[in-house]
Design a protein around this nucleic acid. Structure first.
Length: 295
DNA sequence: AAACAGGCTTGCC
DNA sequence: GGCAAGCCTGTT
């Protein structure tokens, strides 16, 4: 079938998508936005999205999604991989800045995945003062504990639904080894079950109000709130500032130690309403080249 | 009111 | 004993 400039062929559970541009799996999955994709020996990635366990690879400009069905291209994959957005256009705007030009050269194939809001909320609560490998392990353990098995051969479990965690005791949640963050997961899940905050609610608010609203949830501060808004595709004019982004901004742009709000306002001024995309290019660039690490 | 210091689970170094 | 995608609490 043909869909908005893409050509999709599916047989034997292998979906082949022609027409992808500005697309690199390593850049996408290792720029810090997702926790459920694992690199395989051959450079492909196994991952879990909703209740689908798939393998994706890119070869000769064709994106292959294994264990997938054609009907889910529009439902799931077109949106998930943000295939409706023209990243060439975004990059050409950001590239007017020489520093960003370098960062984009490093991560030219980054795309912002449009992930599940609830999953991002819990995942980024877990991310606080933590390391990416352990965040991935904790999210997976939580899924095994309270999600559901979707592919027994691969030990693949979907992320828990809101009610799965809202009905769990603190002791049960603590089995995922998220440490001091477990009580935040516990409390936030209960609030979410009462629909204290919904995605639709956040979409109807402006960015500042949406951030403020999210920060009412325990375990959600300014950095985590911005990550949630960006990675679930709710707001793109945010600039999640973690230690890496802080260091890269200080080293490449500000040339001095700077406060969080200085960095945020500088970014807004420098990148306009594309701060979210700029942050991803910078984060990937900084980590890959260990910028600001004294080496 | 706004800014800052100290503490926090866990596991790897 | 130090440290890691920050947040919360109590103190000025």
């Amino acid at each position: 079938m043909e869909y908005k400039g893409y050509s999709i062929n599916c047989k034997n559970g292998i979906m082949a998508i022609e027409g992808v541009k500005d697309f690199n799996l390593t850049h996408i999955f290792e720029c810090g936005q997702c926790f459920r994709w694992i690199r395989q020996q051959d450079g492909s990635y196994n991952g879990i999205v909703k209740d689908k366990f798939v393998n994706v690879s890119l070869s000769n400009g064709i994106l292959y999604i294994r264990n997938a069905e054609e009907q889910n291209f529009i439902d799931i994959w077109y949106e998930y991989f943000d295939l409706g957005t023209d990243y060439s256009k975004i990059k050409s705007v950001l590239e007017k800045d020489e520093i960003m030009k370098e960062a984009i050269k490093t991560g030219y194939g980054i795309r912002l995945l449009r992930q599940d809001f609830w999953e991002m909320l819990i995942s980024f609560i877990i991310s606080a003062n933590n390391m990416i490998p352990r965040i991935m392990k904790t999210v997976d353990t939580l899924s095994v504990l309270k999600g559901g098995c979707i592919e027994a051969n691969y030990n693949a479990y979907r992320f828990p639904e809101i009610h799965d965690l809202a009905n769990a005791t603190l002791e049960e949640i603590q089995q995922c080894k998220a440490g001091f963050r477990c009580k935040y997961i516990h409390q936030t899940s209960k609030l979410m079950y009462q629909e204290a905050i919904t995605k639709e609610m956040l979409q109807s608010l402006d960015t500042d109000m949406a951030r403020k609203e999210l920060m009412k949830l325990p375990g959600v501060g300014p950095k985590v709130a911005d990550c949630i808004l960006l990675f679930s595709g709710i707001k793109f004019d945010v600039f999640p500032t973690d230690v890496w982004v802080k260091r890269v901004m200080e080293e490449l742009y500000l040339k001095k130690e700077s406060k969080l709000n200085e960095i945020q306002s500088f970014a807004k001024n420098q990148f306009g309403n594309l701060t979210g995309y700029a942050q991803q290019y910078l984060f990937y660039h900084a980590r890959l080249n260990r910028i600001g690490m004294g080496k």
